[in-house]
Design a protein around this nucleic acid. Structure first.
Length: 815
DNA sequence: AATCAGATACAT
DNA sequence: TGTATCTGATTG
């Protein structure tokens, strides 16, 4: 055990070899964090990945400076998981490390040093640098590695620190634990004294001349008596700006109200009333038994339940079972937004044993969850995909809700991995079970489940026997020909909305395209506005009166005249959701029409406000992008309209039809949840298109059969495995040449029918980088590993060309 | 990622 | 000739 392979938080291939000094050889363990020098003068927090005794021949290994953990921060299961991820997804361990750890757990040169307590330093044995450092520490107690540079030459820093540590004079200060202070939230209440004395009239009289104070007092009193168990947040009082903190202070001074503090998770959680969850229905019970059976056989489950079939109830049952066995649960969601149904009940029952983890937490909040997971204080974690990396001790169940959702494999952030597939692997390492749940499973999962790799459980009935919504196709071509249209809406569709409004019900309109118009085109010269960073036309946003690039986010003001020919006639082409919203508002001027898309929801609490508005029935019609298909469960939505359904289908992507089906089904699930009379109107130029016909029939096994046949016909997943390699560089010509070279190398090893490209990516230039791609279609099964190793070989050969090292290369496995 | 050596560009 | 800037290689 003389040498250790260390993972560094850098996007570099493989691990790095370090010598383990004898005095720490007995304490160092796999999964511990260690400080190591790297490069000229940097110190990084690395992770011990492997031990061995082979002295490296190509270089001289440096020594580990010190160990940062008493116990390994990563359990062995996680080390195995990282290894698997990096091999399967062809990504670097360092990338995984950086993604997995909150930054304060991987401090770099920010690490602090301090003097060991009660030591006597023998200065005569020290060199100049060592003396400087000791003296500095005597004055300052704590010192940062970067600060040391001020008085010790860079090249000597590490040597100096090491020798002082060896002499037992100084030590590394691990301040992380104390750095985090649990946040306390201020709550308010009427003082017990007031409640006891029952002299309200007297009090109100005394506040006669202080109107606001009186109002505030009554406001708090009312809230408190309404529901004595509810805590009233202090910040809540001042939200609408009517009361100010001075009013509260005056009341507090008079001893009428008081504030108290409680520790709360930093993530705001639901504090309202708890809905009693009904017992499982017979159908749900049967499904749950099937889950039990599957788990006993050691198989995972795909729970395919139509919208509102009560998948959540089954999750809850299994979660409680798992916890009562003393194991932990990870509940994965594609994104943390509204997760009410699942949190409500769990929070009441498990309180502080319930945790949340997602990308939007601050670093300290993340560290807190790490600590709580490590101490086994969290029994259930509701989280997004980055929670796969937490140091679970005893994971028993992973639930992947909405498993089809693309949020599980975002293309923007490396490392590129699919959280759903990875969850299955991680669970396997922990000996845990997995439930994948969705109303519209991905074709891949469906196929696996049908091939008995997982247990397939189908819940075909809405909870409480509520009927599924009915689909109707409107032939827009016919409507146009017979002049029965107004703008983008057929008169029939308008009529149906009208009827819904008359019945005091709500309508949702789905149009999955942001902005007002996708292009502004000059009428006389055909000029269109391109983003200056990307080869993409800019979208016109009328509400903000600007042009936006949806890929890099660049914004520009809307041109009044054509910049090329100065014509004033600019045509709007391509309908966006803003335009649909505008049209509907004009058709129904007396009704409340709201818009929900990322642009209108950007303001703080915009989403929450709209949510309440819809819930209270103040909104009659919601127009929105795919956002409206998630998390909006209301009782009075009876109609869902999709005016331009075709736009979802004709996207250059083999998954376009699947996604269209998923989106339409998800959004249709919002309709008629209580009444069972929900209706979905799909307006299309191609009512005969198989996807629309199949959706209308609502025969789920037929739909998936259709998808699978198509996939098989064109050799797409799940019948093959795709790897996409994308090359990017500032210089078009350079990346073009590189991609040609990569193509030729790949063709040397792989059969021709496996390789598509190289070719320009659909977006030829993104953020000023030119992009080329090669798509690989590899066979499944035994041959896959062989083919993949050949891909690896090709990539290695490509990397050896020094001229191409500046080219950024992204590899997407299971594209 | 960060650093450093070497190459290139540019002003004196 | 010296200095600023860029490029590419290397790090254990």
């Amino acid at each position: 055990m003389q040498y250790a392979q260390i993972i560094l938080p850098l996007n570099l291939k493989g691990t790095f070899t370090y010598k383990v000094p004898e005095e720490i050889q007995s304490t160092i363990q796999l999964g511990m964090r260690v400080l190591v020098p790297f490069g000229g003068k940097k110190i990084y927090t690395g992770i011990v990945f492997e031990f061995h005794d082979e002295e490296p021949t190509q270089f001289v290994a440096k020594e580990v400076i010190s160990i940062l953990d008493e116990q390994p921060i990563l359990p062995l299961e996680q080390i195995k998981f990282w290894k698997w991820l990096s091999e399967y997804y062809l990504c670097n361990l360092g990338e995984i490390y950086r993604f997995a750890f909150p930054s304060s757990l991987k401090l770099e040169s920010e690490t602090y040093l301090k003097l060991k307590p009660n030591i006597t330093v023998e200065f005569e044995n020290l060199d100049v640098n060592e003396m400087y450092l000791i003296q500095a520490l005597e004055v300052r107690q704590l010192i940062n590695l970067t600060d040391i540079e001020a008085f010790i030459p860079k090249k000597d820093i590490i040597k100096t620190i090491n020798s002082l540590i060896d002499l037992q004079y100084i030590e590394i200060d691990e301040k992380i634990a104390e750095k985090y202070k649990a946040k306390e939230v201020a709550y308010v209440k009427i003082t017990d004294e007031v409640l006891k004395n029952n002299n309200l009239t007297e009090i109100l009289l005394s506040l006669k001349r202080a109107q606001k104070q009186k109002d505030l007092f009554l406001h708090i009193l009312e809230k408190q008596t309404e529901n004595p168990d509810l805590h009233i947040k202090k910040s809540e009082l001042f939200e609408d700006g009517y009361f100010a903190s001075s009013h509260f202070k005056s009341l507090a001074d008079k001893n009428l109200v008081e504030e108290y503090y409680m520790q709360r998770d930093r993530i705001e959680s639901y504090e309202g009333e708890i809905e009693e969850v009904e017992e499982l229905t017979e159908i749900q019970k049967a499904a749950k038994n099937e889950v039990d059976e599957a788990f006993e056989e050691g198989r995972n489950v795909l729970l395919h339940g139509v919208t509102s079939s009560g998948k959540t109830h089954i999750y809850l049952e299994k979660i409680e079972e798992c916890i009562s066995e003393g194991k932990n649960v990870l509940f994965l969601l594609p994104e943390i937004s509204l997760t009410k149904q699942i949190t409500q009940r769990l929070e009441k029952k498990y309180g502080r044993q319930l945790g949340f983890y997602h990308q939007k937490l601050t670093d300290f909040e993340k560290v807190e969850i790490w600590r709580r997971i490590k101490n086994n204080d969290v029994k259930i974690l509701i989280a997004t995909r980055n929670a796969l990396f937490l140091p679970y001790l005893n994971l028993g169940l992973i639930v992947v809700d909405e498993e089809h959702d693309s949020g599980y494999k975002p293309r923007e952030v490396s490392p590129f991995f699919n959280a759903k597939d990875s969850a299955l692997v991680l669970a396997n390492f922990y000996g845990a079970n997995v439930i994948l749940g969705s109303a519209t499973p991905s074709v891949e999962s469906y196929y696996l489940a049908r091939k008995e790799k997982m247990k397939y459980i189908f819940l075909n009935e809405r909870f409480g026997n509520v009927k599924l919504p009915e689909f109707e196709l409107i032939n827009f071509k016919e409507a146009q020909d017979s002049k029965k249209v107004s703008g983008n809406f057929s008169l029939k569709l308008i009529d149906e909305i009208k009827k819904t409004l008359e019945e005091k019900n709500q309508t949702m309109i789905l149009h999955n395209r942001r902005g007002y118009a996708s292009v502004l085109e000059c009428e006389s010269c055909g000029y269109v506005n391109y983003c200056s960073n990307c080869d993409v036309v800019m979208t016109y946003h009328k509400a903000a009166n600007e042009m936006k690039c949806h890929y890099c986010g660049q914004r520009a003001s809307k041109p009044k005249t054509c910049p090329k020919c100065y014509s004033e006639n600019l045509n709007e082409r391509g309908v966006g959701v803003e335009q649909i919203h505008e049209e509907i508002s004009k058709i129904f001027p007396d009704n409340e029409v709201d818009r929900m898309d990322v642009d209108s929801m950007r303001k703080k609490f915009a989403y929450e406000k709209l949510y309440v508005k819809i819930e209270d029935g103040e909104t009659d019609i919601v127009v929105g992008t795919q956002m409206i298909s998630k998390g909006l469960d209301f009782d009075h939505i009876e109609l869902v309209a999709i005016p331009k359904a075709d736009s979802m289908l004709y996207v250059q992507d083999f998954r376009a039809e699947e996604r269209a089906y998923q989106l339409i089904t998800q959004v249709s699930g919002r309709a008629g949840r209580v009444s069972g009379k929900g209706r979905i109107l799909i307006q299309t130029f191609n009512p005969d298109h198989s996807v629309f016909q199949l959706i209308k029939m609502n025969n789920i096994s037929k739909i998936y059969k259709y998808f699978l046949t198509e996939r098989q016909k064109f050799n797409y997943p799940p019948f093959t495995k795709l790897i996409m390699i994308e090359l990017k560089h500032r210089r078009d010509e350079k990346v073009n040449r590189a991609s040609q070279f990569l193509g030729s190398v790949l063709r040397k090893y792989l059969p021709e029918d496996c390789i598509l490209g190289p070719e320009r990516s659909q977006i030829a230039r993104l953020n000023n980088l030119y992009q080329f791609q090669v798509m690989l279609k590899l066979p499944r099964g035994k041959n896959y590993d062989k083919f993949k190793s050949l891909v690896l070989l090709s990539l290695k050969e490509f990397d050896e060309i020094t001229a191409y090292q500046s080219i950024k290369k992204d590899v997407f496995v299971d594209f």
